[in-house]
Computed example of a mutant assay.
Amino acid sequence: MNRLFIVSLIVFLAACRESSAPHVAGQEELLTTAAPIAVKVVVVNMFELGEDEGDAAGEFQLWKERQQLSQRFAFPQSHHDLFLNPDTGVLGMVTGMGTNRSSSAIMALGLDPRFDLSKAYWLVVGIAGFDPEDASIGSAAWAEWVVDGDLGHEIDARELPQDWTTGIFPLFSQGPYPEKRPPNQGEVFHLNGKLTDWAYEFTKDTELPDDPAIAESRALFTQYPKAQLPPQILKGDNLAGMTFWHGQHLNRWANQWVEYWTEGQGQFVSSAMEDTGTAQSLFYLDRAGKADYQRLMVLRTASNFTVPAPGLSAAESLLHEGESYAGLALALESAYRVGGKVVDELVNNWSDYQHRLPYEE
Rank of each mutant, 00 (worst) to 15 (best):
S8N: 15
G322R: 02
L357T: 08
E345Y: 01
G126M: 06
A25T: 11
G247A: 06
D116Y: 09
R101C: 11
A157W: 10
A219T: 03
D205C: 02
K119F: 04
P36A: 08
G92F: 00
P358C: 11
V11D: 10
P22S: 12
S281D: 02
F47D: 07
F73S: 05
E18D: 05
A56L: 15
R300T: 07
R181Q: 15
G96H: 08
S136C: 05
A140Y: 02
H246I: 09
V298K: 06
A14M: 11
P170R: 08
G26Q: 03
E144Q: 12
D112N: 15
A288H: 13
Q71C: 04
Y224R: 06
L69K: 04
I10K: 09
T166R: 09
D352C: 03
L285Q: 07
W261H: 11
P170V: 05
N349H: 15
K226G: 01
Y121R: 13
Y177L: 14
A15Y: 03
E333G: 05
R295F: 01
A143P: 00
D148G: 13
A219Q: 13
G110D: 05
L234Q: 07
K226N: 14
S104V: 14
L123I: 10
G186C: 11
D116S: 06
E28N: 13
D87E: 15
S303L: 13
L151K: 05
F75S: 11
Y336Q: 13
A309Q: 12
P209S: 10
V42T: 06
S8D: 15
K204L: 02
Y325C: 08
M93V: 06
V7S: 09
L82P: 04
T222L: 12
Q265F: 01
E65Q: 14
E144R: 15
P183H: 09
G89M: 02
K235A: 10
F268I: 04
I168N: 10
W122A: 10
F73E: 07
A315C: 00
T165D: 14
D55K: 12
Y121P: 14
F169W: 14
R181N: 01
H320I: 11
A143T: 01
Q61N: 13
G277R: 03
A128Y: 06
G311H: 09
A57K: 08
P183D: 11
M242E: 15
V147H: 04
W257Y: 01
A120Q: 07
W142K: 07
E321G: 05
A141E: 03
I127P: 01
N251K: 07
F12G: 00
S19E: 10
G339F: 00
E59D: 13
